[in-house]
Amino acid sequence: MQLAQFLAENKGEIQDHWISRVLDSYAEDAAAIFKREQDRFANPVGYSTRQTLTTVYSLLFDRPDQPEPDLQQLRAEMETFIKIRAVQTFTPASAVAFIYDLKAVVREAAAKQRDLAATTADWEHFHDTLDQLALIVFDLYVACRERLFQTKINEIKSMNYMHTQHGCSAAGQVDKTTQLMADVQPLHTHSNEAR
């Protein structure tokens, strides 16, 4: 059996392992506060994890003759998931780590499949794809954090809109942070541009 065929045929099982492994990451925490439970309490986080990982896997390995994945589509699919992770006290590295989880899950599954005839080239291609994915995730994560900080700046500006944006004569009354922000960020004349 070819690697691509193997990945397509064992889709369900590999996906499940992958999802539970990513969710497990909450439990492998050094503090070991939590362990996993079967009946998952429904939630934005769990939902997004399951949904995103399933879709991403399908886009990559749905059929043995899967065409090269559309990176733009992959990026779009992962955006919400990464957005959530980006505000969840994950370290930047751990935001990417879930991609490497898939490598491990596939390797374990492949070890059990006796008739698997995967060439080195097959494996290289597989790893390259996931590495590429990891880079996208990293981009996304950084973009989310940037957006978050931009939001912070926007908030300070819009809260003091009349001072920072409107050339108000009372700008001298604003506290130092606001002034600093106004100095650092070129002034926009209208809020729409700021957005």
């Binding site: 309490f41 429904a42 939630n43 934005p44 769990g46 939902y47 399951r50 949904q51």
Partner: peptide, 11 residues
């Protein structure tokens, strides 16, 4: 109410 996830999918 109960927060739940439906296929669709939506919270």
């Amino acid at each position: 109410t109960k927060a739940s996830i439906h296929d669709g999918p939506q919270l």
